[in-house]
Design a protein around this nucleic acid. Structure first.
Length: 643
DNA sequence: GTTTCGGTTCTTTTT
DNA sequence: GAACCGAAAC
C-alpha cells in the first residue's frame, strides 16, 4: 500500500482547496511565486490517489521542462502510478495525435515538422517564385510573423496585412498570394510548421467527430498550466478535449501574460467563467518566493495596468533588503557593476547558479558577455538561435530527414548545396527532375541524382548516396545516430574542417546530437523531438553539473517560471525595456509592463535594476538614455542606493 | 550561367 | 554570427 498524502498539512488552505477541488470546471488564478507548480503537482497526485487511471489525465504545459518537472514531482508523491500520464506542450500533443490521424486531413503520416528556419526559407522561396522580391516588400521574418498571427487568431492574412501596411505602399493582396502559395507548398512537401500542428489538430477535431469523441472519452481530466498564454486555437482545443467529462482545471495569472505577439490572449482566462458558468475560482495570493521588499516593487510596477484582475501578493518571508536601483554611466560601467555585484554576492555565500542577469532582448547582453569572458567569470546563456537550428546541426540531419520524408524539398536542397560546385540552381534542377520526391530506396533514383551533378561533384555525390544505400542495405544500424555518424564519416567531417573556423566546437555539438539521438528508436520520434524541443529543454539534457559554477544570462521570456536568489536586470531604459517596437502596437505598453513584472518577480532575496545613462550607437556616437517609464512609476523610497 | 567570395548591415520576445 | 548583395572566378 502506498502512503497517502495529508494535503491539508503539506499545502496551505488556498493551494489545498484548488488541489482537492471536486469534479467540474476550475479556474485557479495563481500569482507569481504562490506555489502554482506545487498545487498542480498535488492535483495530479490527488487524482491518482482517488483511483483515477493516470492514462486518463492530460496535462498541458508551456514548456517540456515544466511537464517533466511536474511528472517527476508527482511521481515522488504517489510513485509509479503516474506512469501513463499524458504530459507535454500543446505542440507535442498535437503531433502525437496527428501522427496517428494525419491521413484524415489529407497529410501523409510521415509528415515533417518545419522549424522557424525551414519556414522562413520556404516563405522566401514563395516570394521569389511570385517575383515579388523588392526593396519594399516585407522580409520573410515579417511575413512569418503575420502568417503566424493569422493562424493563431483565426483571422485572414489579407485583413491583417491591410491593417499592418495601410500607410505603406505594400499590397495586402500580394501578401495573401504569398501565403496561399506557402500553404500549398507545405502540403506538397508533406510538412507542417508549428502553427499547422495546432490548427490541423483542431481541424481534425472539428471535421471528424469520431476522433474528437475518442479523445473526449479518453481524457477524464484536463489540466492546463500557464493558461493566460493560450491563443484561441489552444483554448478551443482544450474546450473540445474537455467536453466529455468537463473536468477542466486551468491555472494562470493574467499579470504574466507575455505572449500576445504570438496570438496569446489573456481574455481566455478572463472569459473562462463565462464559458463555464459553473466554474469555481480559486486564488493563490500568498507568495513564498520573494522578500517583501521585492514584492513591493513588483506590486507598484503592475499597478500601472489598472484594467487587469487586481490581486495583491502577500509576502510570507521576513523583511530583508530593498532592491537596488543602480544608475550607471554606460554599458561598460554596467558590465563592471554586474561583475562587482556578482563578486559581492559570492562573498555573501550565494552560489553562481543562484544568480541571474535578465534582459529584454538577446543583443542587450552582448557587451556583458564580452566583459564576463575577459574577466574569466563563467556564465551560461540560453542563446537566441536554438541549438537545433544551427547550420551544422541542420546539415547533418538532412539525410535523416529525407529518409523520413522523401518529399522534404528543403532538406534535399540543403544536402545538395553542401557539395562543392553545387549551388541553388543545380540543386533545384535535380529536384525538378526527381518530380517532387527523392525516394532514396531506389538505386536508380540515386543514380539519376548523381548524373544530374556537374562532373567535378559526382564523386562526392556518390559518397553521400552510399549513406542512403548503407541504410537500406542494413550495413549501418537503422537508428538516427548511426545514420548521422555515417554521414559525418564519409562526408561532413571533411566539409566542416574546410568550412568552419570553429570546427571543434561545431563537431562537439554534432557528437552531442548523436548522444541525444540514442534515446530514440525511430527516425520520426527523433526528428519530431528535435523540432519541438526548445533551447531550455535541450540544455536540460546537457551536462548540468558544468553549469553549477556559472551565473545565468537569459531573456525575461525565457526566465518565465524560473527563480533565483539574486536577479540583476540590465538596460532598464526607454526604448530597450520597454522596447521601442513593442510599444508601437496597441496594448504593447501594458504587455511590456507585465514582462517587467515577470522579471522582478523572479528574484527571491535580492533584486538589482540597472539604468545606464548613455549607450553607444553602431556608428560610435553616444546616445542619451532615459530611465524606463516602469522605473518612474515606482516610488523611489522602495529602492536602496547602490554601495 | 552558376558558384564562390568578400564586404556590409542588422539584431524583440518563441513553440 | 549570418544574411544579404555585388563582383570575380569557374
Amino acid at each position: 500500500m502506498t502512503k497517502t498524502i495529508d494535503f491539508e498539512k503539506t499545502l496551505n488552505a488556498e493551494q489545498c482547496a484548488a488541489a482537492t477541488a471536486a469534479d467540474g470546471p476550475v479556474l485557479v488564478i495563481a500569482a507569481a511565486g504562490t506555489g502554482k507548480t506545487r498545487t498542480l503537482t498535488h492535483r495530479v497526485a490527488y487524482l491518482v490517489e482517488q483511483g483515477i487511471d493516470a492514462q486518463r489525465i492530460l496535462l498541458l504545459t508551456f514548456t517540456n521542462k515544466a511537464a517533466n518537472e511536474m511528472v517527476q514531482r508527482a511521481t515522488t508523491l504517489v510513485g509509479e502510478r503516474v506512469g501513463g500520464l499524458w504530459g507535454g506542450t500543446f505542440h507535442h500533443m498535437a503531433n502525437r495525435i496527428l501522427r496517428r490521424q494525419a491521413t484524415r486531413i489529407g497529410y501523409q503520416q510521415d509528415y515533417s515538422i518545419l522549424d522557424a528556419d525551414d519556414s522562413k526559407r520556404l516563405v522566401r522561396a514563395c516570394v521569389d517564385e511570385l517575383k515579388l522580391k523588392s526593396k519594399h516588400f516585407p522580409k520573410p521574418e515579417v511575413l512569418m510573423g503575420l502568417f503566424g498571427m493569422a493562424a493563431s487568431t483565426e483571422r485572414q492574412v489579407v485583413d491583417l496585412a491591410h491593417q499592418r501596411f495601410q500607410y505603406h505602399d505594400i499590397s495586402a493582396e500580394d501578401i495573401a498570394r504569398v501565403h496561399a502559395l506557402f500553404m500549398r507548398r507545405k502540403r506538397e512537401l508533406n510538412a507542417m510548421d508549428f502553427d499547422d500542428l495546432l490548427t490541423n489538430a483542431l481541424q481534425l477535431f472539428r471535421e471528424h467527430a469520431d476522433v474528437a469523441e475518442m479523445y473526449q472519452q479518453r481524457f477524464q481530466y484536463v489540466l492546463v498550466d500557464e493558461y493566460q498564454d493560450t491563443n484561441v486555437i489552444q483554448s478551443e482545443w482544450v474546450d473540445t478535449l474537455a467536453k466529455g467529462y468537463r473536468n477542466i482545471l486551468v491555472v494562470g495569472d493574467d499579470f504574466q501574460s507575455i505572449y500576445s505577439w504570438r496570438g496569446a490572449d489573456f481574455r481566455n482566462i478572463m472569459s473562462f467563467p463565462v464559458r463555464y458558468p459553473d466554474a469555481r475560482i480559486f486564488k493563490l495570493e500568498t507568495n513564498y518566493r520573494s522578500v517583501p521588499e521585492v514584492l513591493a516593487v513588483a506590486n507598484a510596477c503592475i499597478a500601472g495596468n489598472p484594467e487587469q484582475y487586481q490581486k495583491t501578493l502577500h509576502a510570507r518571508r521576513e523583511p530583508y533588503k530593498r532592491p537596488v536601483l543602480a544608475e550607471l554611466r554606460d554599458g561598460g560601467d554596467q558590465a563592471r557593476f554586474v561583475i562587482d555585484t556578482v563578486r559581492n554576492l559570492r562573498r555573501e555565500g550565494y552560489a553562481p547558479k543562484d544568480i541571474a542577469v535578465l534582459y529584454r532582448a538577446h543583443f542587450h547582453a552582448l557587451e556583458l558577455q564580452m566583459e564576463l569572458a575577459r574577466q574569466g567569470m563563467p556564465f551560461f546563456i540560453t542563446s537566441g538561435s536554438r541549438f537545433f537550428e544551427q547550420a551544422h546541426i541542420k546539415d547533418v540531419c538532412t539525410v535523416l530527414r529525407l529518409l523520413g520524408n522523401a518529399s522534404d524539398q528543403l532538406s534535399f536542397l540543403r544536402l545538395m548545396e553542401l557539395i562543392p560546385k553545387v549551388g541553388k540552381r543545380t540543386a533545384e534542377k535535380i529536384w525538378t527532375a526527381m518530380e517532387g520526391a527523392f525516394d532514396a530506396r531506389q538505386a536508380d533514383k540515386r543514380q539519376q541524382l548523381v548524373k544530374g551533378l556537374p562532373n567535378s561533384a559526382r564523386e562526392t555525390g556518390e559518397q553521400i548516396m552510399d549513406v542512403f544505400a548503407a541504410y537500406y542495405d542494413g550495413r549501418i544500424g537503422n537508428t538516427p545516430g548511426a545514420v548521422i555518424e555515417e554521414f559525418v564519416n564519409v562526408f561532413y567531417d571533411e566539409y566542416a574542417v574546410k568550412t568552419y573556423e570553429n570546427y571543434d566546437r561545431r563537431m562537439e555539438d554534432v557528437n552531442e546530437l548523436v548522444t541525444f539521438s540514442t534515446k530514440f528508436q525511430s527516425i520520426h520520434d527523433f526528428l519530431s523531438e528535435m523540432a519541438l524541443l526548445s533551447n531550455i529543454d535541450a540544455e536540460m539534457d546537457r551536462s548540468e553539473a558544468a553549469f553549477d559554477d556559472a551565473i545565468r544570462l537569459s531573456t525575461v521570456h525565457q526566465a518565465k517560471g524560473l527563480e533565483w536568489q539574486a536577479v540583476i536586470i540590465i538596460w532598464v531604459v526607454e526604448g530597450m525595456f520597454p522596447s521601442n517596437r513593442a510599444i508601437e502596437t496597441p496594448d504593447g505598453e501594458a504587455e511590456e509592463r507585465r514582462l517587467f513584472y515577470v522579471a522582478t518577480t523572479r528574484a527571491k532575496d535580492e533584486l538589482f535594476i540597472c539604468v545606464p545613462s548613455t549607450r553607444r550607437q553602431r556608428d560610435g556616437a553616444m546616445n542619451y538614455c532615459t530611465p524606463s517609464r516602469f522605473i518612474e512609476e515606482i516610488p523611489p523610497d522602495l529602492f536602496r542606493a547602490a554601495n
